[in-house]
Design a protein around this nucleic acid. Sequence first.
RNA 1: GGGCCAUUAGCUCAGGUGGUAGAGCACCGGACUUUUAAUCCGGGUGUCGCAGGUUCGAAUCCUGCAUGGCUCACCA
Length: 479
Amino acid sequence: MRVRRQKMEALRAKGIDPFGHRFERTHHAREIVDGFQMFEGNTVRIAGRLMAMRSHGKATFADLLDLSGRIQIYAKLDQLGDEAYELFTSLDIGDIVGVEGKVFRTRRGEVTVEITRFDLLSKALRPLPEKWHGLADVDLRYRQRYLDLIVNPEVREVFLKRTAIVRAVRAFLDSRGYIEVETSAMHTIPGGATARPFITHHNALDIDLYLRIALELHLKRLIVGGLEKVYEIGRVFRNEGISTKHNPEFTMLELYEAYADYTDMMNLAEDLIHYVAVQVLGQTRVEYQGAVIDLTPPWPRKTMVEAVRERTGVDFDAIESDEDARAAARRLGVEIDPAASRGKALSEIYEELVESTLVSPVFVMDHPIEISPLAKKKADDPRYTYRFELIMGGREMANAFSELNDPIDQRERFEAQVALRAQGDDEAHRMDEDFLRALEHGMPPTGGMGVGIDRLAMILTNQNSLRDVILFPTMRPRK
RNA sequence: GGGCCAUUAGCUCAGGUGGUAGAGCACCGGACUUUUAAUCCGGGUGUCGCAGGUUCGAAUCCUGCAUGGCUCACCA
């Protein structure tokens, strides 16, 4: 680093600005390499970061990296003259240069740009990580993601794919007539999910505000307002543990459609994810951590009771009391709160023993009412709700229901949650009078769905850690 | 939060049983006009994560702490 600073000073002394200005490019590296026949002998202007230098005395090869990839450049003393050639050889790996030159192919067959002139656009004062092994230390990869992106090309691919996924989701929903909206990220009452919120403070109003834990309740207000089909792709914040599967801030898609129900949402989920896979991957079979997941619709639909019965042999249709349900859980080795209700026991068994075994996409439907305070209860069996979770790769990808639009029922559900909160469940939902008022104005029957964008990106890019699909995952500050 | 593991040069890593720190890449100097993990010659650039302890002597053994990873728990 000391040496690089000296080089920088030397450049300044010669009247060369080591941090240059705009450089007009004609092409990206990839275009030239792929379309060599069209470019041979032509003059092109490219720019990027020097990734390798191979000096041979009076001729020097280097690799230039831009967004599209790498291309070899070639500096020759005869062509550049003494001064410019010496300047070129004094460049460091990591420096950002703009190059003008002629396209040719070397003896070894490599498409190369022979430099006729070049500009130093930015001096790199710090060295890049090792060229062959790249950057392996995960801590450094996440803290200095820019280095990860420069040095590890597969990392860049993952994030470009993530962008393509989000773009495809938008294109799909837009084509279906959904209206994209932005709702507030700071809430006076955090609602729409069971999670601990982050708290912040507004000085002028002198009130605490919460970063949103879900998008749900505000989007439903827009359904009340007659927007009929809305969606939002937005960051939500949950003040909980950090792991390879959890980041305090993550990206949710939520969408709501008036006059629809959860069966419509199942169809939509199939169409959406199928569309995204085809757009981004060009296929519907994805390899995920050694398993192959076939995304070709339709996907099986089974109730949670059926899923538990298939996996464990325990038939909740034959279980009536809370006590029998808890006993069933204990027989299966599932730890259970001695006060747990029948529905709670069912969902505990499902989550503990069943969910992680579901690799191919499957809709698990009809969740117990106790764990579904925003879903409409089933007309033929009020112990359950019109709800489903889409599971693939053993993990929840989407959560949807026929939305509860009965304000009386909704108030009772909130009251039940508030009672849980009073018993110490600090993740239970809170009473939200403002939302209830909206429902009291009348919300049409509505189907709604939430999709974890990060998890979808994990599946479609075959990444095992959420941090590998989030550019800047939450880290402890470095000391 | 529990358990296990890791932390040594800019990066990737090696350093049985305690004896004063090494390699490759990168970097610096030299040779080389079609190389490509270029090659050849010469050069080691370090708070061995931090703080204590044991010892004549600690990268190495012990304790605590910090950061990260895996995993369990929690968290839909």
